[in-house]
Every structure is written in C-alpha cells, then in structure tokens.
C-alpha cells in the first residue's frame, strides 16, 4: 500500500463540494465516496442528490446505506424520489448555509444537468465552494481535450460557478484496470493545464490502488451504484 500522503483527503477548511461533469463521468460514485470520507473524518456530512436529468442510478438510491454511515441524504422524498420531475428539496438551500455540515452536491450531467445550480450560484459563491469537474477519458465527450474543455466551460456558463479543480476518474466500469486509469492520467493532466486548475485527485477502485502508486493523490473508491445482476 502506498504511503498516506499519496491518499486524497478533503481539506478540513472546505465544507461545500459541488460535483459537476459530463454525463457518465462517474460523478455519483465520486460524490458518494466523498460524502462517506467526510463522514469518516468525523464531520457532520450530507449528500444532496441534485440530479434532475437522470431517471436511474441516482445517489438517492443509496440513502439507506448513507444514513447508516452518518451521511444525511438530501433528495426528493416519498413517491417523488422516483419521478423525473425537476424538483429541488427545500433542504438544499439550507445545506448551502449550514456551516456545521460538510455538504456534497451531486449534480446532473453536462450543462443541462448543471443548469439547476444557477438559481443558487450567488449563495454558493459566498461559501468558498470547491467546484470540481469529474473527468473520464473513456467517455466520448471527454475523449479529446478540446471537447472536455468545452464541456467544462459550458457547465461553468450554465451553472454560474467557476470550476476550481479536476477530479480524474477515468474508468470503464467493471472492465477498469490500472492501465485504464494510467491511460486517462495524461489526458487529465493536459486538461488541468489547459483549464488552469489543479488535479484534485485520481480515483480508482480499492483493488487497483497498489498498481497506481505513481499517481498522487489517490482516492480509493468503493463502487455502490450496482446493476441488478451485480452483488450489492
């Protein structure tokens, strides 16, 4: 196992994490793992599912597991949790101003999914937020750096927030190997240079971490968004 300094941990003085990115970049898995790591630091943590564009595979499906692990879930309640309605739970604006809670906001994909944030941009900006763009080179709209940069800029315009970090999350779901992550690394580095913002971390499943010692900081992830034939 790599030394501790190689591992990513969210800074203690940061409390609002806005997770944006292209469709399918892995925002939800990252947001779930980030919220759990915040709770693991002993901080009161919450995860807001603000995905208004996806009907399936949303973080709200994991609310039971999150609550057990000490992460408060903020998502539409009752039957509305299964709707594809653009409804925003009233607890979201409360989270933005709740200085005692470390909040992760899992935003829908692309500029379409990010648009909902614009209504809260002014409030969010007052909280010195971490706005992170999740990058996955295996996705067609992240495959080329110019397209990834365009996607990032479009999201910024759409939500009214400046992105200030790149989360490198190149993966191929169950087919991901260390080589997949390393293949994505070069492109993630170029994107961070082009966009003029730091690489926050490199994400990988726990079982791949030993093969990825050259990358730092690493964020080992457990995958929660299983499909019905996978053991959850």
């Amino acid at each position: 196992m790599a030394a501790d300094k190689h591992f990513f941990a969210p800074a203690g003085d940061k409390r609002l994490f806005i997770i944006v990115g292209a469709f399918g970049s892995g925002k939800t898995e990252f947001a779930l793992n980030l919220a759990l790591s915040l709770a693991g630091q002993g901080r009161p943590a919450a995860l807001a599912d603000l995905d208004l564009v996806n009907p399936y595979f949303r973080s709200r499906e994991k609310s039971g597991m999150l609550e057990i692990c000490g992460v408060k879930m903020i998502a539409p309640e009752g039957a509305l949790r299964n709707a594809d309605l653009p409804s925003i739970p009233p607890a979201l604006p409360r989270l933005i101003y709740d200085k005692k809670t470390a909040g992760v906001v899992d935003v829908g994909g692309d500029r379409t999914g990010a648009r909902v944030l614009a209504a809260y941009a002014r409030d969010i900006l007052k909280q010195d937020p971490s706005v992170w763009y999740v990058f996955n080179r295996s996705r067609y709209d992240n495959a080329r750096n110019d397209a990834a940069l365009t996607s990032l800029k479009q999201i910024e315009v759409s939500c009214g927030l400046r992105v200030n970090g790149i989360v490198h999350n190149t993966h191929l779901m169950g087919d991901t190997t260390a080589a997949t992550v390393l293949w994505g690394f070069e492109a993630a580095k170029r994107l961070s240079e082009l966009a003029g913002m730091p690489l926050v971390c490199h994400c990988a499943r726990w079982d791949l971490i030993d093969e990825l010692r050259t990358l730092s900081p690493l964020f080992p992830m457990t995958l929660y968004m299983n499909r019905p034939w996978e053991d959850g």
Binding site: F23, G24, N136, S138, R139, Y140, A143, H171, L172, M173, D175
Partner: peptide
C-alpha cells in the same frame, strides 16, 4: 480502445 457509453446514446450513435 474501449469506450464507456450509456445505452441510449450508444443506440443513437450506432
């Protein structure tokens, strides 16, 4: 190179 695609998008692209 393998690419990661969402079903609906892959159907449209195909």
């Amino acid at each position: 190179q393998k690419e990661l695609w969402k079903g609906n998008e892959a159907i449209a692209e195909a």
